[in-house]
Structures are given as C-alpha cells and as structure tokens.
C-alpha cells in the first residue's frame, strides 16, 4: 500500500471511529482489511481505498471500521471493577435511589457482551436486595458483528473458561456441544444498541454507572477529552465511571476525579462539593433506551 493510501485510511478511521493508528501499522491494516476487500470482490488495499472514496459506499465503510476494532473481552475481566460494583457502587446507589428504585448502567464498549453479562450475573447474585427495583443495562458497540454475538449470548469453551467461575457457568449457562449460551433471563437484563462513541449521547438520558473500558486507549488525546466530557454530562452527579486497568482521567479532564482507594473507579468532580448538582433536565425527559 502506498503512503498516500495509508494516510487516507488513517484519516478515514480517525474520522469514522476515532481510531488512531501510529506510523507503522501497515501490517495491521493489511491483515484486517485484505479479507474485507476480498469479500467485496476487490483485489488489493489500493482498490479498497479507491472504492471507499466513491460516494455512498456506506456498507463497505462500515465493514472497514468494524474490521479495525479490537474486540477482545472476557467475563469478570480484571475482577476488581466488579468487586467495586457489588461492594460499593450498588450499595451506595441502593441507598441514594431508594425512592426512585431505578438504576441505569451503560457499557460503552460492550464488544461480544461479556462485560454487560458479568454485571447481569453480579446483579442476579444480589437479587434479594433488588426486589421492586428496575435496573437497566445498556450495552453499546460500534460493531454490528460483535453485537450480534452479544445478543446471542453464545460463547466457546475457551471463552467461558477465562474469568468465569465454574459455579457461575453451571448456574447461568446451558451447553450445546462445545458452546455455552447464557440463560434467557440474564439475556433479558441487557439491551443492545449499535453506537459510535463519536456520536451524540443526547438520546441516552442519564446513567448512574458507566463502564468505558479499554476503548479510550485507541483514541487520541482530543477525542479522549471530548468523550470523557460528554460522558460526564450524561451521568448522575453521584454516579460512577469505570475505566480500563491501563486508563485514567488524570491529566485529561477535570470532569472526573479518582474514587479514593478504588483503582480504575472515578466519580464526577461535582460530587466533591456535595452541592445539589444539575439534574440535566433537558435529558430527563428524553427517550429511555
């Protein structure tokens, strides 16, 4: 691929999905996009680039964006976020929302569904405390392909053995040969939506908990700042943001601050002042997903 074609693809991906590629990722482009090109009947990356430049090539553009996303995920990934969830976030919110009895959770890069389903399992394990409550989990991802897998809730023997305790496998999954499908009850606890983090969050309403793990790492500084700022606006002032183990808000935004002694957990900076925070009234009436 020529330098001009590489630059075109970098620019294309940056504007479509926020993905930032360094100077030497030609191999990644080739390994991920040659199959996409061939599927579209094109013989080379050059032909793919030429086709992308044509107006209204939306299906191909989407396939290119999807092929370049990284979708690795596993159940209970990093463990601690889910300990924070059951030991701190949920107990605090159960107190704070005692009158509304409603909690809304957003997994902003849900991939093949392991993270939202892990949260669903955590909630199921504490279900005695949740009688009469409405807990929403929204899982979004930029890729239709991974969302289809997430919706199906079917995983390979390899996938269910990374992080998922055996008792929970027995309890919440049924087996067909070497694949395992999560129970319909847990599947019904999660709603799925294809969504690009570069787009407006306005239709989402307000969330109490946002998991946004291992996706900001693919973006440049300005995009990270923008997304974190917009997440802050879509969150309850006493809500929680969870980032990936290698991610932080420090040095990026003042909208969040680290929760004391809780690695990877952040709270809106407004919570510090303990003032009645804005209720985002414009969003309060927005459609609930």
């Amino acid at each position: 691929m020529s330098p001009a074609e590489y630059d075109y693809l970098r620019q294309f991906l940056k504007s479509r999905s926020g993905l930032v590629l360094s100077n030497e990722k030609q191999y990644l482009i080739e390994s991920r996009l040659l199959p996409v090109a061939r599927k579209a009947g094109l013989q080379s990356i050059a032909a793919l680039v030429a086709k992308l430049k044509e107006p209204r090539e939306t299906a191909l553009a989407e396939a290119v964006v999807e092929a370049m996303t990284t979708n690795e995920s596993f159940f209970y990934r990093d463990k601690t976020p889910f300990e924070h969830f059951t030991q701190m976030m949920m107990p605090e919110l159960l107190k704070a929302r005692a009158s509304q009895k409603k909690i809304r959770i957003w997994c902003a890069a849900a991939s093949t569904g392991q993270e939202p389903y892990t949260l669903a399992m955590c909630l199921k394990e504490m279900e005695s405390k949740l009688a009469g409550w409405r807990i929403e989990i929204l899982g979004t991802d930029i890729s239709n392909e991974v969302l289809d897998r997430a919706k199906a809730g079917t995983y390979t023997q390899f996938e269910v053995q990374r992080g998922l305790p055996i008792q929970l496998l027995l309890k919440y999954f049924t087996q067909q040969g070497e694949s395992w499908t999560i129970s319909p009850q847990l599947r019904s606890m999660v709603q799925w939506k294809k969504f690009n983090l570069l787009d407006s969050f306005a239709s989402f309403g307000q969330f109490d908990i946002v998991f946004c793990r291992n996706v900001l790492i693919y973006f440049d500084q300005a995009t990270k700042v923008d997304i974190l700022g917009r997440i802050a606006k879509t969150m309850a002032p006493d809500g929680y943001l969870v980032l990936g183990a290698a991610e932080t808000v420090v040095g990026l935004t003042d909208a969040f601050k680290p929760a004391p002694d809780r690695r990877g957990l952040y709270v809106p900076a407004t919570a510090a002042t303990a003032q009645p925070a804005p209720r985002f009234s414009a969003l309060a009436g927005a459609a609930r997903v």
Binding site: K79, Q157, F158, Q161, R162, G163, P165, I166
Partner: peptide, 17 residues
Amino acid sequence: YIMKPFDREIVEAKFQE
C-alpha cells in the same frame, strides 16, 4: 474445573479464581 483442551491463559485464570 478446566475443560480440555486448555492453554496457559485458562490455567492462569482458574488458579487465580
């Protein structure tokens, strides 16, 4: 409980568990 075939990641995950 590990179902064969297994690999390094699975052994590590289960021993952590």
